[in-house]
Computed example of a mutant assay.
Amino acid sequence: MSLESIIKKDIITVDKSKTISEIQDLFEKQRDLIVVSNGFFYEGIINESLAYKLNYDPTTTKVKTLMKVAPKLSGNENLDDVSRLMVESGFKTLPYVLQDGSVGGGVFADDVISQSRSVFRNVTAKDIMTPDPVTLDVDSTIGQLLSTMRNSGVSRVIIMKDEQVVGIVTLHDIIQKVIKPKFRQKRDSPIGEMKDIAEGSVKSIMTEDVKSIDENANAFEAFELMKKFRFSSVVVTRNRHLSGILTKEDLLKHIASIKVTEPAIFLQLSKKGVIEELEYDPETIRRRITSLTRKYSKILQNSTLTVYVNGDQRQRKGKPHVIIRIQVNGPYVKTSVTGDGWGIKNSLVDAIHKLEKVLEKDR
């Protein structure tokens, strides 16, 4: 089926001159909002995680300040191309842009996955899930949760009690239950640091109604669960115990890698302000990872490698603190390693060194 058949014409767009407080209610209808200028021309995308910044005043901060430029579609792409662009950009909605630069519609991840059902015919949840997901005890504080998410570079944490899953907290939960209420309370004044929330209980913000699926079930069944309950992930179990987590991103990765003979590499950059200061460009990172996959080509055969690059505002000798997580998902090895350091070069070297240790052990 052609891409044109799933392009939605009726999408929500916002002008880049609007303030965050003017658009924040629109996220309830569409997670990724297409940003335009002069009412029509594509500029970028803004979502909840970009919009809700604690050190910005939502009543004066413009959309153009926090938006991010994302890939645009011409209508000639294949579904695997679109899947790759969604994974690497981190957006589950991409704009369809006409030749004159105006927005003609958008493509949503749910539609891409739905139209790719056939590629999941013989694929189980275990085949493409993320194994050993990040977990936290139910008695933990919100401060511990935020620290875990930041240090692990993840957007969701599974909450456990006595080795059983009792809940899950996603970045969306934090925005909706912690940050957004503060925005509404302080629309007339700048948002400051919310030190008072750190001691709150994880139980107060977690989603208890966690949906799960057996690891031997078909992967597309997981997507149907997500779509039915409007979740972005499901827990994967083995004998009713936690085995992994399967997200829409995992499904998109599989679609994107289906025609790739070498290990598929996905690269995600976040924290725009920090990344701009890094001395490595994305293609340099990709070349380093490609070199690694060729060195371990046998064990990484038919695998996907996702590289998450995060940073924060800490600096040492002019270099930002960078965290790189490399996630490997394949038939012979499933693992995730995290490297950190000052500057992307040191962090990347650390992450690759840790991954090589795992691969040498399993080879």
Rank of each mutant, 00 (worst) to 15 (best):
T304H: 04
E28L: 15
T335D: 09
T284E: 04
I344V: 15
R316D: 10
L305C: 09
I142G: 02
M226C: 15
L94Y: 00
K203M: 12
P282Q: 12
P95Y: 06
D132Q: 09
E199F: 15
I352H: 03
V165C: 02
T207N: 08
L94E: 03
S2C: 13
V307F: 00
G192P: 06
K298F: 14
S212N: 08
D10T: 11
E262H: 09
D127V: 05
K180T: 12
S257Q: 00
S243E: 02
E43H: 13
T65N: 14
Q301W: 10
D139N: 15
L54V: 11
H353P: 09
E221I: 05
D111E: 13
K53W: 10
V154P: 00
T93F: 06
K62I: 09
G273E: 13
G104Q: 05
S336D: 03
V235P: 05
V154R: 03
R314V: 10
K186N: 13
G105V: 07
I20R: 04
L73K: 05
G153A: 10
M86R: 05
Y280M: 12
I285L: 07
Q268D: 14
M194R: 10
L269E: 09
T13F: 07
D173V: 08
P320M: 03
G167Q: 06
I191N: 05
E88I: 13
G39E: 10
A256Y: 03
S204F: 11
D214W: 09
F220C: 00
D25K: 14
S147M: 13
T60D: 09
A217P: 04
K248E: 01
Q30A: 08
P133H: 05
L33W: 04
Q164L: 10
K62S: 13
D362F: 14
A70H: 02
P58D: 04
R316G: 10
D32G: 10
S336A: 10
F183A: 06
I113L: 02
S347V: 06
V328L: 08
G330Y: 07
E262C: 02
E283T: 11
N47W: 03
G39D: 09
L3A: 09
L225P: 00
I285A: 02
T338E: 05
D209T: 15
S114M: 03
E208K: 14
E221W: 00
L305H: 04
I191D: 07
V103T: 01
V236Y: 05
D139F: 15
I23R: 06
F120S: 01
K18C: 12
E360A: 10
V112C: 03
R156F: 07
E283G: 11
G104T: 07
G339Y: 02
F108S: 05
Y96S: 01
F27T: 01
S21G: 12
L225G: 06
N216V: 03
S37P: 06
D127F: 03
P95W: 05
M86Q: 01
Y56S: 08
T130Y: 07
E360C: 08
L269V: 14
V154H: 03
E276P: 06
V333G: 13
S257P: 07
T13G: 12
M206E: 04
Q115H: 13
N329R: 13
G192Y: 15
Y308H: 14
R363Q: 12
